[in-house]
Amino acid sequence: MNLSKLCLAHASITFAAGVVLVAAPALIPSTVGIHLNPNEYLLAYLLAGTELGLAALSYNGRNLRHPEVRRVVVMPCIVVHASSAALEVLAFAHGVSSVILVNAFVRIIVVGLFAYYGFFAHNTKFSASNS
Protein backbone atom coordinates (compact mmCIF):
# COMPACT_ATOMS: atom_id res chain seq x y z
CA MET A 1 0.00 0.00 0.00
CA ASN A 2 1.06 3.57 -0.61
CA LEU A 3 -0.57 6.98 -0.29
CA SER A 4 -1.91 6.88 -3.84
CA LYS A 5 -3.72 3.60 -3.23
CA LEU A 6 -4.98 4.81 0.15
CA CYS A 7 -6.40 7.95 -1.48
CA LEU A 8 -8.10 5.87 -4.17
CA ALA A 9 -9.63 3.48 -1.62
CA HIS A 10 -10.71 6.42 0.55
CA ALA A 11 -12.27 8.16 -2.45
CA SER A 12 -14.22 5.03 -3.37
CA ILE A 13 -15.53 4.42 0.13
CA THR A 14 -16.48 8.05 0.82
CA PHE A 15 -18.12 8.36 -2.60
CA ALA A 16 -20.19 5.24 -1.91
CA ALA A 17 -21.22 6.62 1.50
CA GLY A 18 -22.26 9.89 -0.14
CA VAL A 19 -24.35 8.10 -2.75
CA VAL A 20 -26.07 5.97 -0.10
CA LEU A 21 -26.82 9.05 1.99
CA VAL A 22 -28.54 10.64 -1.01
CA ALA A 23 -30.34 7.53 -2.29
CA ALA A 24 -31.44 6.22 1.12
CA PRO A 25 -30.90 9.02 3.66
CA ALA A 26 -32.14 7.05 6.66
CA LEU A 27 -30.14 3.88 5.98
CA ILE A 28 -26.73 4.72 7.47
CA PRO A 29 -28.10 6.51 10.57
CA SER A 30 -30.43 3.55 11.22
CA THR A 31 -27.41 1.24 11.66
CA VAL A 32 -26.74 2.97 14.98
CA GLY A 33 -30.36 3.32 16.02
CA ILE A 34 -30.98 6.83 14.70
CA HIS A 35 -34.21 7.09 12.76
CA LEU A 36 -34.70 10.02 10.41
CA ASN A 37 -38.09 11.20 9.27
CA PRO A 38 -38.32 12.52 5.71
CA ASN A 39 -38.40 16.11 7.01
CA GLU A 40 -34.98 15.41 8.65
CA TYR A 41 -33.25 14.13 5.50
CA LEU A 42 -31.48 17.46 5.08
CA LEU A 43 -28.97 16.30 7.73
CA ALA A 44 -28.13 13.22 5.66
CA TYR A 45 -27.95 15.29 2.48
CA LEU A 46 -25.50 17.74 4.07
CA LEU A 47 -23.36 14.85 5.27
CA ALA A 48 -23.55 13.37 1.75
CA GLY A 49 -22.19 16.61 0.34
CA THR A 50 -19.27 16.42 2.74
CA GLU A 51 -18.61 12.77 1.84
CA LEU A 52 -18.67 13.57 -1.89
CA GLY A 53 -16.32 16.53 -1.39
CA LEU A 54 -13.90 14.40 0.61
CA ALA A 55 -14.07 11.74 -2.11
CA ALA A 56 -13.18 14.33 -4.74
CA LEU A 57 -10.29 15.61 -2.61
CA SER A 58 -8.90 12.09 -2.17
CA TYR A 59 -9.42 11.08 -5.79
CA ASN A 60 -7.83 14.22 -7.22
CA GLY A 61 -4.98 14.07 -4.74
CA ARG A 62 -4.00 10.48 -5.39
CA ASN A 63 -1.23 11.29 -7.89
CA LEU A 64 0.11 14.57 -6.56
CA ARG A 65 3.85 14.39 -6.08
CA HIS A 66 5.00 17.57 -4.28
CA PRO A 67 5.15 16.95 -0.50
CA GLU A 68 3.39 20.18 0.49
CA VAL A 69 0.57 19.53 -1.96
CA ARG A 70 0.18 15.98 -0.67
CA ARG A 71 -0.20 17.34 2.86
CA VAL A 72 -3.02 19.57 1.66
CA VAL A 73 -4.87 16.35 0.81
CA VAL A 74 -3.78 14.34 3.86
CA MET A 75 -4.51 16.89 6.61
CA PRO A 76 -8.22 17.38 5.79
CA CYS A 77 -8.68 13.59 5.74
CA ILE A 78 -7.02 13.30 9.15
CA VAL A 79 -9.03 16.20 10.60
CA VAL A 80 -12.37 14.91 9.27
CA HIS A 81 -11.84 11.39 10.55
CA ALA A 82 -10.27 12.33 13.91
CA SER A 83 -12.96 14.89 14.70
CA SER A 84 -15.71 12.54 13.51
CA ALA A 85 -14.35 9.76 15.75
CA ALA A 86 -14.36 12.09 18.75
CA LEU A 87 -17.89 13.26 17.93
CA GLU A 88 -19.07 9.67 17.52
CA VAL A 89 -17.77 8.90 21.01
CA LEU A 90 -19.67 11.97 22.23
CA ALA A 91 -22.82 10.70 20.48
CA PHE A 92 -22.36 7.35 22.23
CA ALA A 93 -22.08 9.20 25.56
CA HIS A 94 -25.42 10.83 24.72
CA GLY A 95 -27.15 7.51 24.11
CA VAL A 96 -26.42 6.46 20.52
CA SER A 97 -25.94 2.70 20.09
CA SER A 98 -22.52 1.28 20.93
CA VAL A 99 -22.27 0.22 17.27
CA ILE A 100 -21.09 3.79 16.65
CA LEU A 101 -17.87 2.93 18.51
CA VAL A 102 -16.95 0.48 15.74
CA ASN A 103 -17.12 3.33 13.25
CA ALA A 104 -15.06 5.54 15.57
CA PHE A 105 -12.43 2.79 15.80
CA VAL A 106 -12.32 2.43 12.00
CA ARG A 107 -11.87 6.20 11.70
CA ILE A 108 -8.90 6.07 14.07
CA ILE A 109 -7.33 3.41 11.85
CA VAL A 110 -7.93 5.65 8.81
CA VAL A 111 -6.28 8.56 10.66
CA GLY A 112 -3.28 6.34 11.37
CA LEU A 113 -3.02 5.25 7.74
CA PHE A 114 -3.18 8.82 6.44
CA ALA A 115 -0.66 9.98 9.04
CA TYR A 116 1.74 7.16 8.23
CA TYR A 117 1.56 7.32 4.45
CA GLY A 118 1.19 11.10 4.33
CA PHE A 119 3.91 12.11 6.75
CA PHE A 120 6.11 9.23 7.86
CA ALA A 121 6.57 6.87 4.91
CA HIS A 122 9.23 9.05 3.28
CA ASN A 123 10.35 6.43 0.81
CA THR A 124 6.81 5.65 -0.35
CA LYS A 125 6.35 6.72 -3.94
CA PHE A 126 3.17 8.62 -4.50
CA SER A 127 2.11 7.48 -7.94
CA ALA A 128 -0.64 5.27 -9.33
CA SER A 129 1.92 3.20 -11.22
CA ASN A 130 3.68 2.12 -8.03
CA SER A 131 2.57 -1.41 -7.08
Rank of each mutant, 00 (worst) to 15 (best):
V79I: 15
F105M: 10
N123D: 12
L21K: 06
V22L: 09
A91P: 04
V22E: 09
A24E: 12
S30Q: 05
V32D: 07
M75I: 15
A26F: 04
V80Y: 08
S129D: 11
G118E: 02
P76S: 09
L27D: 07
F114Y: 05
A9R: 05
A16R: 02
M75S: 08
L6C: 03
S12E: 08
S127N: 15
Y41K: 08
N123I: 13
V89I: 13
L36D: 04
A56P: 02
R62W: 02
T31C: 09
L47W: 11
A24K: 10
A26E: 08
Y116Q: 04
G53S: 08
L101A: 14
A16F: 06
E68F: 14
F114L: 03
V111P: 00
V20T: 07
S127Q: 14
V20G: 02
V72F: 11
R71E: 12
A86D: 06
L47Q: 11
V19R: 03
L42P: 14
F120T: 08
L57Q: 02
G61E: 01
A26S: 09
C7S: 05
A44E: 03
N123V: 11
R107L: 09
E88K: 11
A93N: 14
A85P: 01
S131T: 11
F92E: 13
M75V: 13
Y117A: 03
S12Q: 09
L57R: 01
N63D: 15
F120V: 08
L3T: 00
L3Q: 02
C7Y: 01
S4K: 02
L47I: 15
V79G: 07
A82D: 02
P38K: 14
H81L: 09
V74A: 05
E51I: 06
A55D: 00
A121D: 12
K5I: 08
P67S: 10
A93S: 12
R62S: 07
V96C: 14
I100W: 03
E51S: 13
V79E: 07
G33I: 07
I78M: 05
L87F: 13
Y59W: 11
F105K: 11
S131H: 12
P67G: 11
Y59L: 12
N37E: 12
S129K: 11
A104V: 05
S30H: 03
F126G: 09
A55S: 06
N63G: 09
A86N: 04
T14A: 02
T124C: 15
P67L: 12
H66F: 13
I78E: 02
F119E: 05
L54T: 04
G118Y: 00
